[in-house]
Design a binder for these strands. Structure first.
Lengths: 248, 248
DNA sequence: CGTCGGCTTGATTGTGCTCAACCCGGGTGG
DNA sequence: CCACCCGGGTTGAGCACAATCAAGCCGACG
């Protein structure tokens, strides 16, 4: 079902950029050697379908580079993104025959893939993989539930602010900078994709982004480059606890 | 932090109503014997907090009977339910120190609890538990993502119809009846709790329930007893694929 | 009998959707 | 080289659906 993705050369797991964050992060060298034998890389161009809901699933794997989107579409065309897959995130469902959701490359994406059957055996034989996968799945579940609050209860402005805050936090986490002060990054999604993710229309996304700009909470260079002059005041707009919970 | 729940007498795992659906469903008799030693029962009355977001987590466990709700509250009081825990569902997070969400007893609830630390050891030593827990977590993740579509994209009427359809399907699954024709069940949630679950206000819930009644799609006995005269036509109102996906 | 909580119903408001025009930048072809 | 087009994005006007504010109903319970 995939439209001719390129296959990359084999490269060593030890050099992998997601070595310490993906499913394999807790593997010992000997376990890693096994994975090394099984893995294949594939890249997809922005906009390409990686798989369709209902497809037979032959592979599972990790996002090595780029951003993929999990989404669901109703018959009449309404669409909701249900997950954003960033580098180190796991793709696919051990123990399931068919894909539950569409997976689309939001930017150019590189995946590290394993055939499903051998990987399922690994899960049963290798606790370091099974435990890590459980942990990652629980984290994703928590993230999905946080997102439910956003979808069900937040205003359009809060949704946009929350989304930008998440991206900004991710940016600072990677570059190990402070969360306060200036943050700069590039939106990995189009306005339409943002709308699908946030449960809005693209017009509303555009309007609210403009509103945040007018309010001086963000600055734009072009359509995709965002600068946040003061992260704290953006957080104020998310509707979240800004003082980090637990008052007592 | 829990307000004096009652503790029940020890009873045998072999007789447990959720024996074949909970985390322990794939345990061998010897493994079950270990769990039998570790478990405690606790009951909570409808409305009682089972735990608060941020609490230290000492226990994990399964819902044996009744319905519990996972939810999140914003500072200004907006609330979103992020999960409904039905019998056999798992409560708690191995590998986490604190609870990510509030857990509230929606009806009277009985839990089968294990101290967290010993249970975590079991996960590492007992693949039949680890694998089952991973499977259940993946199912919950899929359910959460389905719910995101509902929260982000469905209309009030579709939300109510979807919710009722889920309850009805659950009812027929338990009694092994057909999914067509008449279904009867009792709502486990108040109008307010339904609103929190569906991302609506309680007034809108009330209005849409009345509207479905006026349209003849459901019948009410009292406030909580629902009869669905024709399940197929209720499904029509959910906005979901009614023909079960996969046309090709 | 009065009160209280859960629920229903009504009137009005407001946020975000719909429909529609327009802008902007990049690529193509005459 | 310019004209054109096309896709992604912005902006505007009007509308609709669900939220808000408010009153009243109903059954349980003291």
């Amino acid at each position: 079902m995939n439209t001719a993705p390129k296959t990359l050369a084999h490269s060593d797991c030890g050099d992998c950029p997601i070595r310490y964050r993906a499913v394999c992060s807790r593997c010992e060298p000997d376990e890693l050697a096994v994975l090394d034998q099984l893995k294949t890389y594939k890249t997809y161009e922005a906009g390409q379908m990686i798989c369709w809901a209902g497809d037979q699933l032959q592979f599972v794997g990790s996002v090595v580079d780029g951003v993929a989107a999990l989404s669901q579409t109703m018959e009449d065309g309404r669409r909701q993104m249900v997950g954003l897959l960033l580098p180190s995130d796991f793709v696919g469902r051990p123990g399931r025959e068919t894909a539950p959701f569409d997976v689309i490359a939001a930017t150019d994406v590189t995946l590290c893939l394993f055939r499903k059957a051998p990987f399922e055996e690994l899960i049963n034989s290798t606790p370091s993989i099974a435990t890590r996968l459980l942990e990652m799945t629980l984290d994703e579940l928590d993230a999905a539930r946080e997102w439910m609050l956003l979808l069900g209860r937040k205003t359009a402005r809060e949704k946009i602010a929350s989304f930008l805050a998440i991206l900004a936090r991710r940016e600072t986490a990677l570059s190990a900078g402070q969360t306060m002060g200036k943050v700069e990054f590039t939106l990995p999604l189009s306005r339409e994709a943002m709308a699908d993710y946030l449960g809005l229309t693209l017009e509303t996304v555009s309007r609210q982004v403009s509103a945040l700009k007018r309010a001086g909470l963000i600055e734009l260079q072009g359509k995709r480059k965002i600068t946040i002059p003061d992260f704290a005041s953006l957080l104020n707009e998310t509707g979240d606890d800004t003082d980090g919970g637990m008052p007592a």
